Computed example of a mutant assay.
Amino acid sequence: MYPGMIALTMIVLPLLSIGTEYALAPDEDPVFLIGKWFVFWAVGVRLLLAGLRQIFDPAFTAATIFKIEDPDARKVVVELGFGNVAIASLALLSVHWADWVTPAALVGAVFYGLAGLQHLRNRQRTGTENIAMASDLWIAAIAIFYLTAA
C-alpha cells in the first residue's frame, strides 16, 4: 500500500493533473503547472496522509520506517504528524491561491530535502526507508527545479 500511495502522489496524479490542465489551458506556463500540481499532490496530499497516519498510528512510522520500538518514540512521531499536517495545509490551499505555490514549494523542498538526506545517512535502511528516501529526494528535486525556473 505504501509504495502505491507514493507512486500515485509523487508521479501519477501530478502528471495527470498537469496534462489535464495543460490540455484545457494550453497557454498556461508549464513550469507553473509542474509547481502547482507537484506541490498539491506530493507536498499536500502525501504529507496530509502521512501526518494523519503519524497522529493516529504513530507506531507505524516509529517501527516500520525508523525501526524504533520504544513506545515513548510515538510522542515524537505524533508531533511530526502535526508538522506534516501544517505543511500539507499550505500546499493543499496553494491550488486555490497561486501566490502560495512558491512558499509551499520552498517548504516542501526544505522538508523533503532534509528528510531525504537524513535517510541517506542511515546505512542500515529498510526497504520502506529506501522508498521514503528516494521519494523525498525526488520531490525536493522537483520543488527546487520549480523554485529556480519560476
Results as ranks from 00 to 15, higher is better:
2 Y>Q: 10
4 G>L: 11
6 I>P: 14
6 I>L: 14
6 I>M: 14
6 I>D: 07
6 I>Q: 13
7 A>C: 13
7 A>I: 13
18 I>V: 15
18 I>P: 00
19 G>P: 13
19 G>S: 13
19 G>H: 04
19 G>N: 11
20 T>R: 14
20 T>Y: 10
21 E>L: 01
23 A>W: 14
23 A>H: 14
24 L>A: 09
24 L>M: 10
26 P>T: 13
27 D>N: 15
27 D>Y: 01
28 E>N: 07
28 E>F: 08
28 E>Y: 03
28 E>K: 14
30 P>C: 08
31 V>R: 01
33 L>D: 08
33 L>S: 10
39 V>D: 05
41 W>Y: 04
42 A>S: 15
42 A>K: 00
44 G>C: 01
48 L>N: 06
50 A>D: 15
50 A>L: 12
52 L>S: 02
52 L>C: 10
52 L>Q: 02
53 R>V: 14
54 Q>H: 15
55 I>S: 02
56 F>R: 06
56 F>V: 11
58 P>F: 04
59 A>S: 15
60 F>W: 15
60 F>G: 05
64 T>Q: 09
65 I>Q: 05
67 K>M: 04
68 I>A: 05
68 I>F: 07
69 E>K: 12
69 E>I: 03
70 D>W: 09
71 P>Y: 02
73 A>F: 12
73 A>V: 09
75 K>H: 04
77 V>H: 03
77 V>I: 14
78 V>Q: 13
78 V>C: 00
82 F>Y: 07
83 G>P: 00
86 A>F: 11
88 A>P: 15
89 S>P: 00
89 S>I: 07
90 L>N: 11
94 S>E: 04
96 H>G: 12
97 W>Q: 14
97 W>H: 15
98 A>L: 07
98 A>P: 04
98 A>C: 02
103 P>V: 12
106 L>P: 12
106 L>W: 09
109 A>M: 14
110 V>E: 02
111 F>H: 12
111 F>E: 02
114 L>R: 10
114 L>D: 01
116 G>F: 04
116 G>M: 08
120 L>E: 09
121 R>W: 07
122 N>W: 02
124 Q>G: 00
125 R>P: 12
131 I>M: 12
132 A>L: 09
135 S>W: 07
135 S>Q: 11
136 D>R: 14
137 L>G: 09
138 W>N: 07
139 I>D: 00
139 I>F: 00
140 A>V: 02
143 A>S: 09
144 I>A: 01
145 F>T: 03
146 Y>R: 04
146 Y>N: 04
